[in-house]
Design a protein around this nucleic acid. Structure first.
Lengths: 336, 336
DNA sequence: GTGAAAGCGCTAACAC
DNA sequence: GTGTTAGCGCTTTCAC
């Protein structure tokens, strides 16, 4: 808590609090001499403005909530970094909540953030439709909501930051084909996540184009974490499904699968090439390093924060969709 | 922002705001009938208390700052989880800042949090002494500071949550010796981090006890991230230093080193066993999985939050040091 | 049991 | 150019 207040300065200098305030705010109606005295006294006594008073005055808490599915992988941290880059210098605090990939927890988090009186919420959701009612309620109450990465179903019009999942997924698959792979597995995320469906569409389109599509090669996972990837790999081996490569929905799933294969003595990339989507550090801290679609996560955070600022300035600003550019990074996991 | 206020309810029910307030706070001086009416109206109109007004009233922002070195690894996220477990239900917001292992950024973060008027700061520092002056200043201003994991030098008495680095490091080394390793490298963190020194001491003590200590086997890194581990491994190979195992300061350094060795075709654990310290998911998502000292990160966060609450309740509460139990988890990276 | 009024720290409209 | 005052939303004396 700030100890010393305008009132203290006012007493100290025998000036009214409004004069002090004006001096501090660099108002035009202030004597240069007076201002200097005030500034010096403020410095000397260690005055720090009370943000709470300002919040009350202006009706803005300067708190922005962030809801993410998890923070085990660096994905959200990177986006957070971008959000902070924009919001911290402007005096906004960012309050993070983790949903643990559970829509129920996400729901609680949203309610918690509302209780925290945030000015807006930036969210990467964990289920396309489950909490749609809450999203709506929140927006109806005049609290702007900005989505990134995983967005709600099309029935809800919102501001959002996304990547072109479909096209980039197809590029990954093309790459696998170009390097001679024919039995390309897709480890697909839950279909309650729009991106999973989009990436699958990209995958399917290319395989069909090349006439090598086989529905058996699509493994839909239940979860999103490493074990889900392991299960997918186990499933493939247990069923003796023949495959020479994997395109996974995310680095996380890819790594889970990769480690299972390595444990079973399968050589990567010699026997099975692995590629994925995300672009976190995870792709480069495993061996072999993963070919992956790199998303500009920090920039995505910055974009989301910008959208949020726009909405805060004018709640009726039109919803925008920002599509970020991604880059397919080729690494050892897909080359012999 | 909450739309509807006590005043609105007051008008709506033709009652004074004080009565409304009393009803909502379940005060004894309130007619049961009146209270019922108020509660119903509040529900109906969707009243939500304005936390800002409360903050101003009580002189507490209910904001707690968190300063961590990085969020690329899951270490801080886990601790954050624990902190949130305790603080969120109590209405405290947690505001995170990342120092990027840079004391200068840490300094800025601390100042930022002060400007945010936090009620207290929980911190995992990135340099033992560099910002000691700021820590002191902050505490002198009556803002409680609680440290965890990496703590300041002994000249600064503070509340903190730590683990027994020295003893657990020695257990890891004993384990390596028990599995037949003789040339045990230590990849040591920067000595500006107390834990690095403690873990090195544990390492040294055991090697000396067994008469196999060789100063050449200690590689002190400059950084803390994966590349620093790689560099250490490169250094070992370049200098043709003979070794059959590695004990690394952290999972991060261990993984960096491991991947470099794997790239050079060195077999793990057959040729080189690897063990580390941390206990994040990182240890289990690489191949082979890492033997590592598992720290109870969520619990550490909870303990730090508890210490913080104590300090908030009574700023003059005595400083406490909580030492958490850790567990050495044996995994494939140290077994043939 | 209820209402009026003060005050938390600050800014801004209004006097002078 | 400076001071006075009101008010942001809430709780809490103090009256009645």
């Amino acid at each position: 808590m700030s100890r010393i207040t305008l009132k203290d300065l006012s007493k100290f200098l025998s000036l009214s609090t409004s004069t002090i305030s004006r001096a501090l705010l660099n108002d035009k109606n202030i004597n240069a001499e007076t201002q200097k005295r005030v500034l010096e006294a403020a410095e000397k006594l260690g005055y720090r403005p009370n943000t709470t008073a300002l919040s009350l005055k202006y009706g803005q808490t300067k708190n922005i909530g962030l809801v993410v599915p998890e923070m085990i992988t660096p994905f959200s941290s990177k986006v957070l970094q971008g959000i902070q880059n924009i919001l911290y210098p402007l005096g906004y605090r960012v309050i993070i909540t983790q949903s643990d990939e559970n829509p129920l927890i996400e729901r609680k988090n949203l309610q918690l953030l509302e209780e925290f009186n945030v000015d807006g919420i930036i969210i990467n959701l964990c289920h396309e439709t489950y909490n749609e009612d809450v999203y709506k309620e929140i927006m109806d109450r005049g609290i702007p909501l900005v989505f990134f990465d995983r967005i709600p179903s099309k029935t809800l019009e919102v501001s959002k930051v996304v990547v072109d999942d479909n096209i980039k997924a197809s590029l990954v698959v093309e790459h696998l084909i170009n390097t001679g792979r024919k039995r390309i597995v897709h480890i697909m995320g839950p279909s309650t996540i729009r991106n999973a469906v989009e990436r699958e569409m990209g995958y399917k389109r290319i395989l069909k184009k090349h006439n090598i599509f086989d529905p058996e090669l699509i493994i839909k996972t239940d979860g999103m974490m490493f074990e889900a990837g392991e299960h997918a790999a186990k499933h493939l081996l247990d069923r003796k499904i023949e495959f020479d490569s994997i395109f996974a929905f995310s680095d996380t799933l890819a790594i889970g699968a990769m480690n299972y294969l390595l444990e079973k003595g399968i050589k990567i990339p010699e026997q099975v090439a692995v590629a994925s989507f995300s672009g976190t550090e995870l792709a480069t801290i495993v061996h072999p390093k993963l070919t992956s679609v790199q998303q500009p996560l920090v920039k995505m955070g910055e974009a989301a924060a910008d959208l949020m600022l726009e909405k805060i300035k004018d709640i009726s600003a039109p919803n925008q969709t920002i599509v970020m550019d991604t880059e397919l990074i080729y690494r050892a996991s897909t080359f012999n």
